[in-house]
Design a protein around this nucleic acid. Sequence first.
DNA 1: GCCAACAGAATCGTTGACAATCTTGCTTCG
DNA 2: CGAAGCAAGATTGTCAACGATTCTGTTGGC
Lengths: 216, 216
Amino acid sequence: MPNEARPSSGEQAKQLALTRLRQAIMHGEMAPAQRLVENELAERFGVTRASIRAALIELEAQGLVERIRNRGSRVRVVSVEEAVAITECRMALEGLCAAKAAVAVSDEQLAELTGLGTAMQKAVADGEPVTYSELNHALHARIREFSGQRTAVELLERLNAQLVRHRFQLALRPGRPQQSLKEHLAMIEAIRARDPQAAEAAVRAHLTSVIDALRD
Amino acid sequence: MPNEARPSSGEQAKQLALTRLRQAIMHGEMAPAQRLVENELAERFGVTRASIRAALIELEAQGLVERIRNRGSRVRVVSVEEAVAITECRMALEGLCAAKAAVAVSDEQLAELTGLGTAMQKAVADGEPVTYSELNHALHARIREFSGQRTAVELLERLNAQLVRHRFQLALRPGRPQQSLKEHLAMIEAIRARDPQAAEAAVRAHLTSVIDALRD
DNA sequence: GCCAACAGAATCGTTGACAATCTTGCTTCG
DNA sequence: CGAAGCAAGATTGTCAACGATTCTGTTGGC
């Protein structure tokens, strides 16, 4: 499970609706462009419309849902061009994070990155694209985290949430993990060398490759 | 209330509450960390609490308001460190926009940028920091716009909204406009030369200087 | 046969009231 | 005199009902 969002017991109605709706969208349980009728969701989740409404407003602000006045909400679909534009933003922000992380990273954190790297190699060797995709996600998340750039991390998480569908399709493409693996290992290597410029360059190279792949 | 920017007549209650609250915060009518009691706001704006609540949820997602469960909302205060972190993100994203703009810009748009540049020179010469600050804001906004990067523009507008207070304080500091002017003219020059790398470098140099100034 | 007006259904927006929670100030006991 | 406990007040969270808007399918006229 790449993301947090555990509906802990003492949760409030709105929070529960928010986390469950978010998970449903991110796990692909809701088809893209599917209508999200407030009454249905309220009944499904056992909360009132007000809570669903609050959750939808928040999801709209996060770019996961599209709302039109008096017409309703639907799961937002991101076109390929939009996915490219989002990835370009990721390139700028993750580049920043990688550079910062290369300077700030601790030895234990370096060990964790190295471990992720070998796990990714194993996943590719074993031909397990789903595992690889999860490790991929985890690696990016860890690097962001290690940078200590709270603002950038927040923005990146918003952006990534919008890409779930595309990310998945990408990981399942034959040959893609092999290509991607090399770039990821280069990122790890640059951070291990504590070289901020090299780390930023490696991340940018990787995401440039992602953009090319997105465009088919 | 000197609030223009009409919440156009046919506007819905929630939209009205949102625009007015947003303006009030951005114009500094609400002291930082001021409590935002839903009932008070509802009465002040002549709408119901539900509309205020919806507006507050949206403003929280935009980073302008802080909400704590069962405790209420307040205007979010951004510390200096946070302002620096935000500006670092701006550096990454505006750098991207400037590079794209340098390639995509049209001749009329170039003329507009040049015009802004001369207006800024005049404002500095006449010693009008407020006018300069507005032109500054306009220049950055135009460059973003000309890049055509919708996603990046959206993120940047969110980030900028959080900086209003700091931006103001910066513009009024003696000597700052003179320093800033040179950097802005360099940005314009690089875009006129349609040189993406130079444009990105100029923006980054400018925002690095802003960070130094923020830190005092 | 085609288009415009119209009624009905579906859905969202708004309202006022009630419940849950937190804060604050007072009281009481050690 | 100080601290724990309690009660009142303030504020947010939740709810169910009402009103407004948009969509859809049908009917009537041309």
